[in-house]
Design a protein around this nucleic acid. Structure first.
Lengths: 166, 166
DNA sequence: TAATCATGGATAAAAAAGATCCATGATTAT
DNA sequence: ATAATCATGGATCTTTTTTATCCATGATTA
């Protein structure tokens, strides 16, 4: 079982954007630079996030990304699904029907019990992810690191804007 | 997010073995043939299962695999962990500490809040998997397909034994 | 009108998964 | 005792997925 690295980048990006002041945006390059990851690759995830309606894009100079809705309305599940795709981790390949000794087809009216159990667990997993919003994270991080990633994002934004202003 | 195919093969193999009569065993080749998968590859998973104490091996002619403990004492989690390994799906790469603009190290006394939330969800996932035992599956399958994989496994065992007896 | 940015496709390199093969050692039926 | 059978483990190879990069295009605004 494995989750792509893109998920971590995406969540951190959204968390960072959640700290922007009203009307502020952050370019893909700036986010990538801050996180120390490839811009071109992060772009792919940012685009997935905007495609899923989590982020808005602002074109033109001074353009960039910003949250499409309030931090309290964005869950970890939203982000994970938009980056990883909606496919479940467990895919039943109906192993029972293959091979030289398959069970008769009348046995497959109902789905495989193993698959059902695995999918149920995944459902619980997703439900748990849906409980945590970006707003919750901001709160948690604030407790932990005295201002949190969000605030730091703002500071970086200022640096970035000062840089581009000259 | 993705689970290897080995997980499905492993669970089906264990479910099949759970239907053996007292003292019965099934060779790796027989299990692989029944499921229509590569013997050499399935072997790797069967070995992982025996290494984890889920299966016992019986060497020699008429040897093979059998359950090391009662079906009610084997959970889906046991199987998934032994095949996929214990590593969590979400691995925090401490993205905050990398890049040209890292947060000061004093911010990292406590673990990343994002990581904590992701890991919590995974914990819930595993807890759900731990709720289902092979015995439960046998019951479910019995309802669904009139005898279940286990019974079918027995039938196949008889065929296999007849084949090897001549 | 020129600079800046997102977008999307194509592509390439790296890592992981899936699958196979072979040599070895242990066990048991004959 | 001997031969057959089986698990074991290591080495290897192929395929797929992931990660990362690049470039051409179109939209937007200073």
């Amino acid at each position: 079982m494995k989750l792509g690295e893109g998920v971590e980048q995406a969540i951190h990006s959204v968390a960072m954007l959640s700290g922007l002041s009203e009307g502020g945006v952050l370019s893909a390059a700036a986010i990538a630079e801050f996180h120390g990851v490839s811009t071109s690759y992060l772009l792919k995830h940012l685009q997935a996030l905007s495609g899923a309606g989590i982020l808005d894009t602002v074109p033109g100079p001074k353009g960039g990304y910003r949250l499409a809705r309030k931090p309290a309305d964005i869950t970890l599940l939203d982000i994970v699904l938009s980056v990883e795709g909606p496919a479940p981790a467990f895919r039943c390949s109906e192993i029972r029907q293959r091979g030289p000794n398959p069970l008769p087809s009348r046995y497959f009216a109902k789905p495989c019990g193993i698959s059902a159990a695995m999918l149920k667990a995944e459902q619980v997993y997703r439900a748990e992810l849906a409980k945590t919003t970006i707003a919750d994270l901001g709160r948690t991080l604030a407790e932990v690191d005295d201002g949190g990633i969000a605030a730091r994002g703002c500071a970086f934004l200022e640096i970035h804007e000062r840089k581009t202003a000259r």
